[in-house]
Every structure is written in structure tokens, then in C-alpha cells.
Deep mutational scan, measured.
Amino acid sequence: MATGGRRGAAAAPLLVAVAALLLGAAGHLYPGEVCPGMDIRNNLTRLHELENCSVIEGHLQILLMFKTRPEDFRDLSFPKLIMITDYLLLFRVYGLESLKDLFPNLTVIRGSRLFFNYALVIFEMVHLKELGLYNLMNITRGSVRIEKNNELCYLATIDWSRILDSVEDNYIVLNKDDNEECGDICPGTAKGKTNCPATVINGQFVERCWTHSHCQKVCPTICKSHGCTAEGLCCHSECLGNCSQPDDPTKCVACRNFYLDGRCVETCPPPYYHFQDWRCVNFSFCQDLHHKCKNSRRQGCHQYVIHNNKCIPECPSGYTMNSSNLLCTPCLGPCPKVCHLLEGEKTIDSVTSAQELRGCTVINGSLIINIRGGNNLAAELEANLGLIEEISGYLKIRRSYALVSLSFFRKLRLIRGETLEIGNYSFYALDNQNLRQLWDWSKHNLTITQGKLFFHYNPKLCLSEIHKMEEVSGTKGRQERNDIALKTNGDQASCENELLKFSYIRTSFDKI
């Protein structure tokens, strides 16, 4: 039985969820670079991206490699990797027998973001014989899940209580170790020597080791999670996991709180800001991140802002960003909400898709409305799209047979046209069989910064309504002859009103 693990408890099935942008060198404390989270699957090609990484700022997932063999891993080693800020997950990587050479110096898994409450997941690794993470000293947050690894031993010899604050939620089941077939031998045991430290858990006094050649490092209890030197002297209180010299914040392997210019500090002093819960960055760093993602459509890219001495992905609820200094300031009234469309555009074809934009005031991208039916549609669209004030790209209304009016965009005031449909149009209306009105132009103002209007096959939309939009939106004169079809717009509506004058002759039985 794995020490510190839980057996036999019912657990939810383990679901495996399925960018080499360097964020800056980590400095003297770390020998390499800070790398983003990685999802490495199918083959070993991307694994080489770990070569210079000291910190993975995010998670590391290595999974679904069915053609790899043990010899493929023999020359692979990433000794610079010290810390993973989120979680480490391995799933069905064939041929991998140990992690001792792959990650010989991995010391800390912070667990800032977890995989279903777990910071370390080893699942269905069919050839893994031992973990071998002999320098792993601290899992700051989260638990361990090690399950269905039929060859995995050296679990009962690990004292997880020396690595985690609590072992109650560890789930370590259905491994070879369960069948008591392992016969784990710690260093020196074969020669009758006791080389590794022994600890007591559940009444068992057991030597602690990761492999037959690597003991588990056990520091004096007084050192807590700070770690200790090879001689057993406690590291500085700002260290986490390990250090090369005692009581020196510049000799830590990793930091308990924050890293700044080669030393570990309790908090980031001005003019620095907390970033990702582990390091200090200056304003320029946060500003660069903001600008890199301002026009990016890459998933996970955030326009970072500053709030409460932190550089964070977005302002919290009730705050909006001051564009001059990136500071989050309290909103006066309802907060603006910028919604970034991942692929640059979004099609609204149902109430469900409209709900995804609920509360958005600025759309960074283009909207395509293609709704053919739905219950209580006008009210639903207004509830979900009615706060949109600005669209950076274009607005396209296409084959939306259920629409009679666009009044559900009740606050839309600006279409920038930074991206144009077919390279020309910022407003595009095609084949809307029941569209009769755009907006009530006596109450609604709309500016279209650039781009043209396109109207074709809107049989109940009168040309007068379209011409009014040209005047109000500032697009009059931009359109070419064929942009607004004269014969297919309003051709099934009563669009022309003329005053009919009647004269009559009164007659009676005795007068003409």
C-alpha cells in the first residue's frame, strides 16, 4: 500500500482533458527560462521544448504516446526543470519506465491550478516501474492521483506527508504495488545497510526511497516546507523545498512566496507586481503582455491589467481597466465587458449561442446573426445582446428569417469595421425574408467608422429604411451602385405612401 494514499474509496472516473512563447529569463536562482504550460502528445517531438525550461508557468501534460519505446527515452533528460506552477499529468506514455532521468531536479509542483483537485496525476502508464522524482520536495496545493499503472512499484516507500501538507485526498490505487509483488529495495538494503531515512506512518517504520538508488530526502521537522541542505541544516524561511546553503534567500532552489532578481522575498516591493503567484514583474512586463494579447485571437491570451499590486489576466467583477495605466478602477454604474472572439468572429444561430455573449459591452471581433427560429426570440436576444455598444469588426445579418427588427441591439452605437466582410463591408444584410426595420432612427444613433453597407434580398425592408441608415451611420456616399439592390429590397412591402385627393359631386333626387 502506498504510504499516505487512500484505498478502496469510491472515486469519480478520471477524465483526461485534452506555445513556446518565453516569458522571460528567471535569473540567477533558476538555471534556465520560464516556459508556458505545455500539452505534449502523440510523439516526442515537442518534448524537446523543455530543454531550457527551469519553470513551467502553467501545467505540463505528457500523454497518448503509443509508439514510443524505452530506448526512445534513454537520452532524454531535462535537468534544468525545477518547478511547475500548476500540475504534472502523465497518461498512456508507452515505453517510459521512470522519471528519474527525465526530470531529475523537479523540486516543486505548486498546484496553482489543479487537474480535478490533483497536482500530480500518473494514470495508465503501462510501462512505468517507478516514479523516480527523487528531488520532489513540495506539492504546495492539491493532491496526488496514481492509478492503474500495472508495473509501478516504489510507492509504499514514499512518505507523501513530507511532500504535501495533507495526504487525506491522495488516491493511489490499482498499481502493481497493490499486489505486494514489488519487493522494493532501498539503497544499501541488499548489503544489509540502512542508507535512507525511515519514518513512521500508520504504525509502520519504513525506509523512504524513490528507487533502488535514490533515497527520499527527509528534512528535520523544524525546517517545515522550506527544505534543508545535504547536511540537514534548514533553508531560509522564504525558500521552498530545498537550498544549497542554509538561511540564505539567494540560495533557495525555489521560493515559498515570490522570486525577485535572484532572491526569494515575502512580497513584491514597489515598483514590482505579483505575477502568477510566484514571481515579481515590473510595469513594462505587464504592459507588454497586455499589448501582445490586445489584437491576438490565441486562446488563453489575456490583456493583463494591474489590481491590488498584482498583474492579473482581467479586472475583477465591479472594476474596469483604465487604459492609460492598466489599473483596475471601480465602475460607475454597470461595468464594461470586452469579449474577445477566439477566431475573430462568432455566429449567433440560437439563443444558446447568444447567451455566451451575455453582459458583453464591447465585441472584439465580428458578429454573424443567422437565426431561423426560436421561442420568445426578441426578448431572449435583447437579454443577451442588448448591452453590446461596440463591435470592432463587422455585423452580418444573414438568412435570419425569424427577425423582424434589429432593435434587440438596443445599445449598439459603434461598428468600427477594423475587419470587413469580403474585404469591403462593415454591415452586411443578406436574404432576411421578414426583416422590416433596422432601428427606430428617431431614437437610435449608430456610427460606422469604416467599410460599406450591403443589402440584398431583404424583400420587406424598404429602401427608405436603408437610406436612413446611410445618413445616420455616416456611410452615405461610400456605397457603390450594386451594394444596395434596388429590386430585391422592399419588393414585397408597401414602401411608397402617396396622399390621394378626392373630389365629389353631391346629387339628390331633384338636383344634379
Rank of each mutant, 00 (worst) to 15 (best):
N257K: 05
S98W: 01
E238N: 08
D277Q: 10
I82C: 05
K191E: 02
C228G: 10
L106A: 00
R279T: 07
T157V: 06
R297E: 10
I62F: 14
F275Y: 04
F115G: 01
C255S: 00
P334W: 14
G132S: 14
S143T: 09
C264G: 00
L233G: 09
S213H: 09
I40N: 01
A190W: 10
I84Y: 00
I146Q: 03
T194V: 08
G58P: 01
K67P: 12
R69C: 10
P316Q: 04
K310G: 03
F258T: 06
C331N: 10
T45P: 15
G318A: 03
L44N: 11
V173Y: 12
C293A: 06
H236L: 01
N202I: 04
K251L: 10
N43M: 08
L131V: 12
R41C: 02
C223G: 03
R46M: 06
N179A: 05
A156V: 09
P79D: 10
D277A: 14
L114V: 08
T140S: 09
I139Q: 01
L64P: 15
L99G: 02
C186R: 01
N257M: 02
P249N: 04
G192R: 05
P249H: 03
G132E: 01
A230W: 13
D75Q: 11
P330V: 08
R141K: 04
D247K: 05
Y304T: 13
N325Q: 11
H291T: 01
F78P: 01
V265D: 14
C215W: 09
F115N: 01
S324D: 12
G183I: 07
P330Y: 11
L260H: 15
S323K: 05
Y272V: 05
N257I: 01
N282I: 15
H214M: 13
N117H: 03
Y30M: 01
R110Y: 04
T107L: 03
N149F: 01
L81S: 00
L81M: 05
T85C: 06
L44P: 07
L50C: 03
T68M: 02
H236T: 03
T194C: 12
G58E: 01
R263N: 04
M38L: 04
H212L: 12
H290Y: 10
V121H: 10
Y171V: 11
G232S: 11
N308I: 07
G203V: 09
I139H: 00
C234E: 02
L106R: 01
K67L: 05
V173L: 13
F123L: 06
C35W: 00
L128F: 12
R141Y: 07
L155A: 12
E49G: 05
S237I: 08
P70A: 10
H214P: 05
D165N: 06
C315Q: 01
A190V: 11
K191C: 05
S323H: 15
C228N: 04
I146C: 03
L60S: 00
R162P: 10
Y87R: 00
I139V: 08
H307Y: 03
R141S: 08
R145N: 02
G37V: 04
V144K: 00
S317A: 04
W160S: 01
H236G: 05
P197L: 07
E180W: 06
R263H: 02
A198D: 03
E180L: 08
N52A: 10
I109P: 00
D72G: 15
S296Q: 13
C280S: 00
P79T: 08
I306N: 01
G232Q: 08
L332V: 15
L50P: 01
H226Y: 13
S112L: 13
E51C: 15
K191A: 14
I312Q: 11
E180V: 06
G241I: 01
V144L: 07
F258Y: 08
N179M: 09
L120M: 04
Q245L: 08
C35L: 00
K191Y: 06
I306D: 10
C235D: 00
P36Q: 14
M38W: 02
Q216G: 07
G37Y: 08
L63T: 08
S166M: 14
R162L: 07
F116P: 01
C264I: 00
K193I: 11
R279G: 14
F258Q: 04
C315E: 01
S213M: 14
I158K: 03
C264Q: 01
P271R: 10
G333Y: 14
R41A: 07
V144C: 04
L136G: 01
N105T: 07
A198G: 05
Q299V: 02
I222P: 09
K224D: 13
S98L: 00
F258H: 06
N135K: 13
K176R: 09
S317D: 09
T189A: 06
R41V: 15
L63I: 02
G142S: 02
E238P: 00
S161I: 07
S284A: 11
R141F: 03
S161P: 01
G37I: 05
R297G: 09
Q61K: 11
Y273M: 15
Q245H: 10
P36T: 02
G192K: 13
C209P: 04
D247H: 05
G95Q: 15
P31I: 05
C219K: 02
F103W: 04
M38V: 05
L233C: 02
K217M: 06
R208E: 05
N42E: 05
C328K: 00
I139S: 00
N322K: 06
C223T: 01
L260F: 08
T140K: 11
N195Q: 06
